[in-house]
Design a protein around this nucleic acid. Structure first.
Length: 361
DNA sequence: TATTCGTGGGA
DNA sequence: TTCCCAAGAAT
């Protein structure tokens, strides 16, 4: 049956649906999957240009599966949460093996793939395959917390269960994909986190929080942890017009991306304990720390850093050639080929500035 | 179950 | 400046 909420929301959606590149009459499941992966914790406006480039570069699931991981990470550079790209890539290869190259039209099967959790499985199932599956993202969570005045913290186990139950209970049969997307559009444009436009909301007559005047108090938030501050250094090691970069471990922070060698230090240190030793062991030469390139302050969601970058060079002598190593000598012109996080990309661009080239020291 | 994972934008 | 947080998932 169709609830009054669904009826009014779908009517609103017919008039106000945003036009987005991945929204089509007969959606390509792969395209929906790509968009949902990119949209995890990321705004629509940020995703659109990445989505367009991605679909031009990897037009099909098979094309993605046959691509190399470095190319995949390169296409993702700047979007953040890089495990999404690695999981998308891994999952594409699994789909080729396990599902004959076709994304399964089944919630549980979707959720068995890396990078597809409860939300994304519901979104793909409903949007791409027309199945009656609920989805609960940040927007929908907020809309339901207000509509039904959910007083428990939304991110608590109890709150999550209540909200998923609401998402399932209010789902209209037949148009679940439109309904889920309508809830997300409503949350993004009307039922916003702060100063919601309740006067324009098609559901204001059904909204308990609006009736009680507590829209801004819903959803109930939980306190967030204090943000640590780290001091980090990076070595810009020059030799014969090239610089040394290192590939980060494939898991964890910026996994699989390249960086200028360095890491966390105690305040006042120039290079991390161990880096000089690693360089010496890999290259057979001592590293000499020279002039600072710059100081970079960066605030991330969960931590802050102050990064000190230094021009460095090797002591006299011929360094060993690198083979099968996580280290590479790269010319400034080639640095763009290596996927990097924001901070290291910024440092790499400083290198190609005329006044920063050469081995001034 | 609580943490860990980026980046950019808005108030 | 500071805080929040945006189509979450993995561990």
């Amino acid at each position: 049956m169709q609830t009054e909420i669904a009826e009014r929301l779908l009517e609103w959606y017919d008039q106000h649906a945003r036009s987005l590149p991945w929204r089509k009459r007969d959606p390509d499941p792969y395209a929906v999957w790509v968009s949902e992966s990119m949209l995890q914790q990321t705004r629509v406006e940020t995703v659109i240009p990445y989505y367009e480039r991605w679909m031009a570069r990897f037009p099909t699931l098979a094309a993605l599966a046959s691509a190399g991981e470095q190319d995949v990470l390169q296409a993702w550079e700047g979007l953040g949460y890089y495990s999404r790209a690695r999981n998308l890539h891994r999952a594409a290869r699994q789909v080729m093996e396990r599902f004959a190259g076709r994304l399964p039209a089944d919630r549980a099967a979707l959720e068995s793939l890396p990078g597809i959790g409860r939300y994304t499985a519901g979104a793909i199932a409903s949007i791409a395959f027309g199945l009656d599956e609920p989805a609960l993202d940040g927007n929908i969570r907020r809309v339901y917390a207000r509509l039904f005045d959910v007083e428990v913290p939304a991110r608590s186990p109890d709150g999550e269960k209540r909200l998923w139950d609401l998402a399932a209970k209010n789902l209209p049969a037949g148009r679940a994909g439109d309904f889920n997307q309508a809830l997300m559009d409503l949350g993004a444009s009307v039922c916003t986190p702060r100063s919601p436009s309740c006067r324009l909301c098609p559901l204001n007559g059904s909204c308990r929080a609006f009736a009680l005047g507590v829209q801004e108090e819903r959803p109930v938030l939980t306190a967030r942890a204090p943000i640590p501050h780290y001091t980090v250094t990076a070595a810009v090691l020059h030799r014969n017009g090239s610089v040394l970069i290192a590939r980060r471990p494939s898991r964890g922070l910026l996994g699989g991306l390249w960086e200028f060698p360095g890491g966390k230090v105690e305040a006042g240190e120039t290079l991390p304990q161990g880096l000089a030793r690693e360089i010496r062991e890999e290259l057979g030469a001592d590293i000499e720390v020279g002039q600072p390139v710059g100081v970079y302050q960066h605030a991330f969601t969960h931590f802050r850093i102050t990064l000190h970058a230094f021009h460095c060079r090797l002591a006299a002598g011929e360094p060993r050639p690198l083979e099968a190593s996580e280290l590479r000598w790269v010319t400034p012109a080639d640095l763009g080929q290596f996927p990097m996080g924001k901070v290291d990309r910024r440092i790499s661009k400083e290198l190609v500035r005329p006044e920063s080239q050469g081995d001034e020291f």
